[in-house]
Measured scan of single mutants.
Amino acid sequence: KRYRAVYDYSAADEDEVSFQDGDTIVNVQQIDDGWMYGTVERTGDTGMLPANYVEAI
C-alpha cells in the first residue's frame, strides 16, 4: 500500500521515521490503531510512523 504524508513528522524515537508533508510512504503495514510501518520513498528511511499523519493514495 502507498500513503501520502499530510503533515510533517519528526521521529521521536530511533525506530520511527521522519517525513514531510507530501512525501510518499511505501510498503506500509498497519501495526495497531495508531501506528504503521513503512518506507519514506524520498529518503529511503524505514520505520514506524503515526497513522493519523498519512492518507491512502
Rank of each mutant, 00 (worst) to 15 (best):
V17K: 01
E16I: 04
D8Y: 07
V54M: 06
A11S: 07
Y37R: 11
R42C: 04
S10N: 13
Q29T: 14
P50Q: 06
D32E: 11
W35A: 03
Y3D: 03
Y9Q: 02
Q30D: 09
T24P: 04
D23V: 03
Y9D: 00
T46D: 04
R42F: 03
M36E: 00
M36W: 10
I25G: 01
K1L: 13
D45T: 08
F19N: 00
E14A: 13
D13P: 02
I57L: 10
G47N: 01
L49T: 02
T43Y: 03
R42P: 03
V6Q: 09
D21E: 15
E41K: 06
T24N: 08
E14F: 11
D15I: 10
V28T: 08
G47Y: 01
Y37E: 05
F19V: 04
R2E: 10
Q30M: 13
R2C: 12
Y9G: 00
T24K: 06
Y9S: 00
K1G: 13
Q29G: 07
V28L: 07
S18M: 01
D8C: 12
F19D: 01
M48E: 04
M36V: 10
G34F: 15
I57F: 10
D13M: 13
Y3K: 01
Y3I: 02
Q30V: 13
W35E: 02
V54P: 01
A56D: 10
R4M: 09
S10F: 14
S10P: 06
Y37M: 10
I57C: 09
K1C: 14
E41F: 07
A51M: 09
R42K: 07
P50F: 05
T39Q: 08
T39N: 02
N27M: 12
Y9M: 02
F19T: 02
T39E: 07
V28A: 10
Q20D: 07
M36C: 08
T24C: 12
G22D: 04
V54I: 11
Y7N: 13
V17S: 01
Q20I: 14
D15C: 15
E41M: 09
R4N: 07
I31C: 13
I25W: 00
V40G: 01
Y3P: 03
D32F: 13
V6H: 07
V26M: 09
V17C: 06
N27D: 11
Y9V: 01
I31L: 12
D45S: 10
I31F: 10
N52Y: 09
V40C: 03
G47V: 01
Y3H: 03
M48N: 08
N27Q: 09
A11D: 02
G47T: 01
A51T: 10
Y3G: 00
L49K: 01
F19K: 00
E41G: 04
Y53D: 01
D33R: 10
T43H: 03
S10Q: 14
A5G: 06
Q20G: 06
N27P: 03
Y53C: 12
S10D: 13
D32A: 13
D8W: 08
I57P: 03
G38F: 04
D32L: 11
V54K: 01
E55T: 12
G34L: 14
V28H: 04
D45G: 07
V26L: 10
D8V: 06
Q20V: 14
D13L: 09
D33C: 12
N52Q: 13
R42M: 04
G34E: 15
R42V: 04
T46G: 04
G38I: 03
E55L: 11
Q30Y: 14
G47A: 01
W35G: 02
E16K: 10
V6F: 08
Y53F: 11
G34H: 15
V6R: 12
Q29M: 13
V54A: 05
V26S: 08
K1T: 14
I25K: 00
D15P: 06
V6L: 15
V28M: 06
V17M: 03
A56L: 15
S10W: 12
G22F: 04
T43D: 03
T39C: 08
S10R: 11
T46E: 08
T24A: 09
G22N: 06
Y3N: 00
R42Q: 05
V54F: 07
R42L: 04
A56K: 10
D15W: 14
V17R: 01
A5S: 04
A56M: 13
D21C: 15
A56G: 08
Q20N: 11
E41W: 07
D32K: 14
A51P: 05
T24H: 10
A51I: 11
G47C: 02
Y53K: 08
Y37H: 10
R42A: 06
D23K: 02
G34R: 14
E55G: 05
K1Y: 11
R2Y: 11
I57N: 05
Y37V: 09
I25T: 01
P50D: 04
L49G: 01
Q29P: 01
L49P: 00
D23R: 02
G34P: 03
A5W: 03
I25M: 05
Y3F: 10
V54E: 00
A51K: 09
I31H: 07
T24R: 07
G38C: 03
D23A: 02
G34K: 15
T46N: 06
M48G: 03
E14H: 11
T46L: 04
E41D: 06
G38M: 00
E16A: 07
R2L: 12
P50S: 05
Q29I: 15
Y53L: 12
E55C: 09
Q20P: 00
M48T: 07
W35Y: 07
E14Q: 11
V28C: 12
G22K: 05
D23I: 02
D45A: 13
G34S: 13
R2W: 09
W35D: 00
T43V: 02
Q20A: 08
L49A: 04
R4V: 12
G38E: 02
F19W: 01
Q20E: 09
D23H: 01
Y7W: 11
G22T: 05
G38V: 03
T43W: 01
G47Q: 03
I31E: 05
A56T: 08
T46S: 12
T43A: 02
R4H: 08
Q29D: 08
A11K: 09
Y7I: 10
D21F: 15
A12W: 08
G44S: 05
V40P: 01
